[in-house]
Each structure stands twice: as structure tokens, then as C-alpha cells.
């Protein structure tokens, strides 16, 4: 073996110096640990603080007005101190459901296409592009909705255009990256031996996919859809721009609606007193809904299929 002239020979340091070095290294190690611990903790702490803050502002209001009349009354008139968010709950549910009806099948189909029917090299180009969709600001989606989608609906389907349907479509597109990228990961995590086994029994590619691979990846796919629901429930800006914001229970997909998030964002700027507290209480409701959805997603991901 030849000694390369570029590699300096390790200096023979005396014992004392070596111990000193060890102490320094040990201290640095400890220090790094605490710094990272603090950073990690600050993320958790901010979640906790946010939760505490909205609970502190919102819960007294709910107690005062009564949970039932707050959630189930249809009249929202802050000037007359009427605070019923039922129409907005319904609107949020419908918009989310609509977004899922559009986003989930498209997203899952996209994930199947990317993982099963496209060469790896092409998938490596397409998948990052889809993930870039997640980086487009929601106001830009809203802008597209206002300029393109709403006039389209108005001209071809009727109604004001700014509607439940428009909100659902925009949200359906916005959640695509979430559904596609998590479903793709879930499908890719399915052992290749399942595909081989199915093909070796004479199944076609599509039979193998829907009879075996999708079943094996089911929990991950469900998790992706639940996470997407969380995003759809919480999305604000795009919905404000395209959904029309009328506080009333929709009777068709073409009616304008106001979601819970839109309600907070629209009125927070000028709300005071009881009105302001009512908006915080709306936030509590949203917070609880999103927490439930996230917990469901985590539970679904943990669940092993077939075991």
C-alpha cells in the first residue's frame, strides 16, 4: 500500500491534551443535545400555547351562550348578539365532502398511475412537480377560482358562480399533493413480492393492483385522505375567494356558502367583545375537528392491514 502524501500524519498528542479534548467533545455533545431539545420543545410548546389561547378565549363564550344554541342555531347576527354557526358547520362539511369527492379519487388514481403504470424515471420527474402544487400560495388558487372557475360555473351551470361547487373544486385540487404523495409512499411500501405473487398466478397488472396492492396499502391511502380532509377543513383564503360567503344553509351545490374558517377570517378584523369571543369559539370547534381528523389519520397509519 502506498502512503498518499496528501494525508497528514496524525500528530501524536500527549495524554493530557487527549483528555482535554475528550472533555471538550463531551461538553459540545451535551450542549448540542440541549439546543436541539429546546428547538423540538418549542414546536410542541407553541402548539400547546395556541390551544390554550383559543380555549381560554372561546370556552367561556360557549359556556355562556350554551353549546347547543351555538352549534345548532341558524342565526348569525353579531349586531343582535345572535351567534349560531350551524350554517357554517354545514357549509364546511359540504365543502370538505365535495373536495374529497373530487380530490380523493383523482389523487388515489394518480398515485396508482405513478407507481404502477409509469416508468420510475418519469415518476421521478412528475412526483416532485405534483409536490410543488403544495407550494403554490392558496391565494393563487383562489385567484384562479375567481377568474376562471366561478365565471365558468355561472355561465354553464347557473347561480352566482361563487359557490359551494367552486369551493369544492378548488379545494379538491389543493389537496391533490397530500393525497398523491402519501398514497404513493404507501403503495411503494407494499412489498414487491405481492405483485410478483399476483402476476405469477396469471393476474393482469390491474387485477394485481386492485386485488392485492391497494388492499395492502389501504391504511396509508385512508390516512392520506383523512389528512387531506384536515387540510380542506382548515383552508381559508381560497375558500373565501370562491365560495361566496353567504351565511345560509345551502340547498344546492350552486349556492354560495360561508365556511367556519371564512367566518373567522372575514370578521376578526372588526369584531369586539362577545362577537370576538364567538369567533374564538368557532376556532375551538375547528381545532377540535382537525385534531380528531389528525388522530384518525395517525391511527389509520399505525393499523397494520391483515395482521
Amino acid at each position: 500500500m502506498q502512503n498518499s502524501p496528501n494525508i497528514p500524519v496524525q500528530p501524536n498528542c500527549p495524554d493530557r491534551r487527549r483528555t482535554q479534548n475528550a472533555v471538550v467533545i463531551w461538553c459540545r455533545d451535551k450542549l448540542a443535545r440541549y439546543i436541539f431539545l429546546a428547538v423540538a420543545f418549542s414546536a410542541t410548546a407553541s402548539l400547546l400555547l395556541i390551544a390554550l389561547f383559543i380555549l381560554k378565549e372561546g370556552v367561556p363564550f360557549i359556556i355562556k351562550v350554551g353549546l347547543k344554541s351555538f352549534l345548532l342555531s341558524s342565526e348569525w347576527n353579531p349586531a343582535a348578539e345572535k351567534f349560531g354557526i350551524y350554517p357554517m358547520i354545514i357549509a364546511s362539511l359540504w365543502v370538505t365532502l365535495g373536495a374529497m369527492l373530487i380530490g380523493a379519487p383523482l389523487g388515489v388514481a394518480g398515485a396508482i398511475f405513478l407507481t404502477q403504470f409509469v416508468p420510475r424515471s418519469i415518476m421521478r420527474i412528475i412526483k416532485p412537480m405534483i409536490e410543488l402544487l403544495a407550494g403554490i400560495p392558496s391565494v393563487v388558487y383562489g385567484f384562479m377560482g375567481v377568474m376562471v372557475l366561478a365565471p365558468f360555473i355561472r355561465n354553464y351551470l347557473g347561480g352566482p358562480g361563487l359557490s359551494l361547487l367552486a369551493g369544492s373544486i378548488i379545494l379538491g385540487v389543493m389537496v391533490l399533493p397530500t393525497v398523491i404523495s402519501i398514497s404513493t409512499d404507501a403503495i411503494n411500501a407494499v412489498p414487491k413480492t405481492y405483485l410478483e405473487g399476483a402476476l405469477a398466478l396469471g393476474a393482469t397488472r390491474w387485477q394485481s393492483v386492485h386485488m392485492v396492492i391497494l388492499k395492502a396499502a389501504r391504511s396509508g391511502i385512508i390516512a392520506s385522505i383523512i389528512l387531506a380532509m384536515g387540510r380542506a377543513v382548515g383552508e381559508t383564503m381560497a375558500v373565501i375567494m370562491v365560495a361566496g360567503n353567504a351565511v345560509r344553509i345551502p340547498h344546492s351545490a350552486l349556492d354560495p356558502v360561508r365556511t367556519l374558517t371564512a367566518n373567522i377570517a372575514l370578521e376578526m378584523g372588526y369584531a369586539t367583545g362577545l362577537h370576538r369571543q364567538a369567533l374564538f369559539a368557532t376556532g375551538v370547534v375547528l381545532f377540535v375537528v382537525v385534531m380528531i381528523l389528525n388522530s384518525l389519520a395517525i391511527a389509520a397509519m399505525k393499523r397494520k392491514t391483515g395482521n
Binding site: E196, A200, G202, K215, A216
Partner: peptide, 29 residues
């Protein structure tokens, strides 16, 4: 061809389905 020439793999690879559905897989296909 693969129905006529079947294969058993190195590692057992039953599908994540029930015993019955595993055996019935080829017929369902």
C-alpha cells in the same frame, strides 16, 4: 402462460388477505 406455469417463491408471499381469499385469488382473477 402464468396460469399454466405457476411459481412458488423463496420467501412465502401470501397476500394480506384471509386464507380463503388467498386460495381463491387465482379463480377470482
Amino acid at each position: 402462460l402464468r396460469k399454466r406455469v405457476g411459481m412458488v417463491f423463496q420467501r412465502p408471499n401470501p397476500f394480506p388477505l384471509s386464507v380463503r381469499d388467498n386460495v381463491a385469488f387465482g379463480l377470482r382473477v
